[in-house]
Lab assay of single mutants.
Amino acid sequence: TGIVNVSSSLNVRSSASTSSKVIGSLSGNTKVTIVGEEGAFYKIEYKGSHGYVAKEYI
């Protein structure tokens, strides 16, 4: 489990790349469930599926 550490919002992406499609966003202080790691990204549970967020903001 981690907490989103941004002042505005954090993009949730379809894969572990900054060039991948943005599938949603999370507000600061949102609790997320981390299910894996891939490079500079965490794989998280997101809306019944999975998404990826940059580690530096969790």
Rank of each mutant, 00 (worst) to 15 (best):
E37S: 11
S7Q: 14
V12W: 01
Y52I: 01
Y52S: 01
I44F: 02
K55L: 03
G2E: 04
S9D: 11
V32H: 04
I3K: 06
Y42E: 00
H50Q: 07
N5Y: 06
L10P: 11
S20V: 03
G24H: 02
E37G: 05
N29K: 10
G24S: 03
F41K: 01
G2N: 06
T30C: 08
T18E: 14
H50E: 07
T33H: 10
I58M: 04
V53P: 00
G51H: 02
I44C: 01
E45N: 08
I34Y: 02
I23F: 03
N5V: 12
I23A: 02
V53E: 00
E37F: 07
G36Q: 06
T1D: 09
A40F: 08
E56Q: 11
Y52K: 00
G24E: 02
S27E: 14
Y52W: 12
V4E: 03
L10F: 05
E37A: 09
A40V: 11
T1E: 13
A54D: 12
A54R: 12
S49W: 06
S15T: 10
V4H: 05
N5A: 10
T30V: 10
K21D: 14
I44Y: 00
I23R: 03
A54S: 10
K31S: 09
I23G: 01
E37R: 06
K47W: 07
A16N: 05
S49R: 11
I58W: 04
V35E: 04
Y46M: 04
S14M: 13
N5M: 12
I23N: 01
G48W: 06
K31D: 06
Y46Q: 01
I58N: 03
N11W: 13
Y42A: 02
L26W: 02
L26M: 05
A16T: 07
N5K: 10
E45Q: 08
Y52P: 00
V6K: 09
V6G: 13
I23C: 04
S27A: 14
Y42N: 01
Y46R: 00
F41H: 04
T1F: 14
S7P: 12
Y57L: 09
E38C: 09
E37K: 05
G39R: 05
I3C: 09
S9A: 14
S20M: 03
K31I: 15
V12I: 08
N11V: 15
V6C: 12
G24T: 03
G48D: 10
L10K: 03
S7Y: 07
K21V: 13
Y52N: 00
L10S: 05
G48M: 07
V22P: 06
N5R: 07
S19N: 12
K31V: 15
G51S: 02
T30L: 07
V12Y: 02
V6W: 06
S49G: 14
Y57K: 07
S20N: 03
G36Y: 04
N5E: 07
S7H: 13
G24M: 04
S9Y: 14
K47P: 02
V32Q: 01
G48R: 06
K43D: 02
S9F: 12
K43T: 04
L26A: 02
G28S: 14
E45L: 14
N11F: 15
S19G: 13
S49L: 11
S20K: 02
K43S: 04
T1V: 15
S15L: 09
Y42I: 03
S15E: 15
K55Q: 05
S8L: 09
R13Q: 15
Y52F: 14
K47A: 10
V12P: 00
I23M: 07
V53L: 04
I58P: 02
G51T: 01
N29W: 13
K55E: 02
S8F: 15
I23L: 10
E45S: 08
T18N: 15
G48F: 06
T33I: 14
G28H: 12
Y52G: 01
S7F: 08
E37I: 10
A16E: 03
V6A: 12
T1S: 12
V6L: 09
A40I: 11
T18F: 15
E38I: 10
G48T: 07
S15R: 11
S14W: 09
S27M: 14
I58Q: 02
S9V: 13
K31Q: 13
